[in-house]
Design a protein around this nucleic acid. Structure first.
Lengths: 230, 230
DNA sequence: ACCATTATTTAACTTTTGGTCAATAAGTCC
DNA sequence: GGACTTATTGACCAAAAGTTAAATAATGGT
């Protein structure tokens, strides 16, 4: 993939400019530097794809590309850590709690969940890295979908049934799941348009509207579920 | 992006195997060979991303990579033709005719359209190349969305309104469009799951079900549109 | 002030890969 | 069958990009 990775003026070497002072070499603690690299790497690979060149990443960090090898044995190892960071540490356990909260109606749960989900997951970093990884190797993005499939979907189906006045706890049917995936995919598609295709979504202008969009769709989903599955 | 591009036994050199015959160098007409290369290139780049190496593509074709340069001045030129082929020559003008057909109800149109649309567009080649291109440079995928935006969406909104018993021809509101994009994105997400994340979609097993899935969603969309916009 | 540690850089190696060019040979036309 | 065209190849180049190893210099401890 051909991306233009703009050269960025190195923060570290910025101080060399004046006078004939020897370039002050900064020295960071292992943990902090590793953290810093990882953070930058997420942004960098989200932007440039996992084909982004280490030399460019290091330029953004103001270090030499060889220093990366002091913290990560190989480029692939770095990328694996990026995946891990993005897919695992951004998962919110609160989502499950929210969906299990007895004081909320199914409709409230759906609205609250998808609003927060879209704010957390429909990020530049997340969407792009998820897709980059899926494009190159399912086994990575699978980890995320596994969480979705086991933790969230069953709860969402349960709430859907509750909304329809049903209380059976039988295994979700494919038809139920597919109908739910219609809603889910529609929401994810917002992120796609925004971060992959670079389209301006209306919601970007006024934050209110994002909420409106999701409310419309959730209401539509639940309402139709009632006539389909009740 | 790191893909494993499996070496494929060259079809051309296959005949060398037996005896000590000199390898028969095949000679193809310009047009056919170019066509052949383009067809393979579509598959190849869909699989490996546009970073796929020309040497591997040519290996699949059973030719040397330098021969590619006899037909395409540069790798980028080849890729541009791949884009053109995928995005432009797969667009069906029938879609517009279908949506303009007066003998069909809005619901019939939606069903027929999205069923055919998903069969044409939700292909391995198409979905992956669309996303690869979007990831690296919007300007390419934009061409496709432009068709969508100008040719299809207005007609779909018109039919939605017709279904709702409205006949005004005013410009679609953002809310109407976003609601439609919910359906549209949900459909596209089927292709995403199938061709990006490698998930088995139920519909893959029985062709009937794909129809059922889309019918469910279309009906849900139209039904809800009525209560939202009527 | 010195030493040990290790973060950081410099230089270099290797493989990959897009691209060029002259040589070769498969058809075709007379 | 010889000449001409051009499809096809093989050898080669240069830049890109991952990786390694040795040299350098902050930093902290004593």
């Amino acid at each position: 993939m051909r991306f233009t990775e703009d050269s960025v003026t190195s923060p570290n070497t910025a101080e060399i400019s004046e006078g004939s002072m020897a370039p002050t070499r900064k020295r960071m603690g292992t943990a902090e530097r590793k953290r810093q690299i990882l953070d930058s790497a997420i942004q960098f690979f989200a932007r440039n794809g996992i084909d982004g060149q280490l030399r460019n990443l290091s330029k953004e960090l103001g270090i030499t590309h060889t220093l990366l090898y002091h913290y990560f044995p190989t480029k692939d190892a770095l990328i694996q850590e990026v995946y891990k960071e993005v897919f695992e540490s951004r998962w919110k356990p609160e989502w499950e709690e929210l969906l299990d909260d007895d004081s909320l109606t199914p409709e409230e749960k759906f609205n609250a969940f998808y609003l927060d989900y879209s704010n957390t997951v429909l990020t530049y970093d997340f969407v792009r890295i998820l897709i980059f990884s899926g494009l190159s190797d399912h086994s990575i993005s699978d980890r995320f979908f596994e969480l979705l499939r086991t933790r969230l979907l069953p709860r969402l189906i349960r709430e859907t049934r509750k909304y329809c006045g049903r209380s059976d706890t039988s295994k979700p049917t494919q038809r139920e799941l597919e109908f739910l995936m219609g809603l889910h995919g529609g929401v994810f598609y917002i992120g796609m348009r925004r971060w992959i295709y670079g389209q301006a979504i209306y919601a970007a202008e006024s934050p209110n509207t994002e909420q409106e969009i999701i409310r419309d769709r959730v209401q539509s989903y639940l309402h139709s579920a009632k006539s389909l599955f009740a």
